[in-house]
Computed example of a mutant assay.
Amino acid sequence: MHHHVRAMDSLTPSDLFSPSKARQQRAQAQDWAHIDSWLSYKYAGRTVPTFERNDETLTVLRELSAANERADEERAIRERLEREALRELERDEAARLPADKQLLDTITAHLTPSGAQSLHSLAATATALNAPTPHPETLAHLLIHHTSTAQTLTNHLAHLTTLHTYLQKQHALLRAHLSTLRTTPAFSTPPNQARHTADHARQTKHLRAKLREHEDKLAALQGQARVAAATPKSADVGSAEAIAEMLEQQKALDEWKGRVEALEEEVGEFGGLPADRDAARKEVGRLEVELDTVRRRRDALFEGLVRK
């Protein structure tokens, strides 16, 4: 109660107008009251040691109190079961006929030490195997079943142990591969990859525009060539001037075709890249790794040829 008053006194004016904070303070005050009562009971009249009262301490003490209460409940249940089992044994002992008890005492008293030990072993074996009767054949069957079950479990345990060892080795191997992939420069993206990708994208866009422009010019030149062939400027088509003009036009046309083909080849190198920039980066990285693999394979083949 005293701690509850201290908690209420620690409320600020803003807390008084905040229902959630006030509710939290009340819950903490109730928890501290429960902890104080539990500690007083555990110390049984002795002085409870002083400690810092904060949220972390409250959390730990609350968990410890709950664990202690669960342990007390389990112990009480176990003690109750033991008392009930003892009462049941006492009832069975009281219900036994006096003649049977006298006969058992007489037989036990006249047994030799080895006979008494054998009788005790027989009773202990029947009890351990949970046998309905102490008949030797029944005990033998139960013992064989118990032995086979134990051997099966032992084999399963050995198999699981081997599997666990194998999985541990595979896990270590996979972690080593992962470390190699993370640390090998060939599998990492170059620092200037973004700039190169952006440059390639700009060049591709520029070359596409140039290609369309040259295609338009080539179409215009081809149209002019067809018009010139259909309507020559000179009446004499076989004159030297007409032939020279046609040769110049053909030469110019061949130059344009060569330039267009060169541009198409240059643009074709970027044709396999995706339109998205991130996807293009991944594709370029994959191609670089593939190129490095092919180079190493080529070098290995060359070294093998040299050794031969």
Rank of each mutant, 00 (worst) to 15 (best):
S118M: 11
S121Y: 07
H135D: 15
L142P: 05
A126G: 15
A140E: 13
H146L: 07
N130A: 14
A109L: 08
H135M: 09
T127I: 11
Q117F: 01
L122V: 09
L129G: 04
A131K: 06
L139E: 01
S118E: 08
A140H: 14
L143E: 02
T112R: 05
A140K: 14
T106N: 06
H146W: 09
T138W: 00
N130R: 15
T133R: 08
G115A: 06
H120C: 10
G115S: 07
L129T: 01
A116L: 12
H110R: 14
L119F: 11
S118L: 14
A116E: 03
P98M: 00
S114Q: 13
G115I: 04
H135G: 10
L103F: 05
L111R: 12
A123Y: 05
T133C: 03
T138Q: 07
A140W: 12
T106L: 08
A124W: 04
A99R: 13
L119Y: 08
A126W: 08
I107D: 01
T138H: 03
A126Q: 11
L143M: 13
L97N: 13
A109K: 08
A126C: 14
A109C: 05
E137H: 10
Q117N: 10
T106G: 00
H110K: 13
T112G: 11
S121A: 15
L139K: 01
A123Q: 10
P132M: 00
D100L: 15
H145A: 15
Q117E: 11
H135I: 10
T125C: 08
K101A: 13
T138S: 01
A124Y: 03
T147M: 07
T112I: 01
Q102M: 09
L111N: 11
D100I: 12
A99L: 15
I107Y: 00
A140F: 14
A109W: 00
H135Q: 14
P113L: 00
T108K: 09
P113K: 02
S114C: 03
H141Y: 07
P136M: 06
L143H: 08
A126T: 13
L122K: 06
L103N: 05
L143D: 03
L122D: 01
L142N: 02
E137I: 12
S118K: 07
L129A: 03
T147K: 09
L119T: 08
A128S: 08
L103W: 04
E137V: 13
S118R: 10
T127K: 14
T147Q: 11
L142M: 13
L129C: 00
L139V: 03
Q102I: 01
D105T: 05
K101G: 05
H141E: 09
L104G: 02
A116R: 14
A131W: 07
S118N: 09
T133Y: 02
A109M: 02
K101L: 15
D105C: 05
A123D: 09
A109N: 07
I144P: 00
L142A: 03
I107P: 06
T125N: 03
P113F: 04
S121W: 07
A126L: 10
T112V: 00
L129D: 03
H110C: 11
E137G: 11
A124G: 02
H146A: 15
E137N: 10
T112W: 02
L111C: 14
H146K: 14
L111V: 07
H145Q: 12
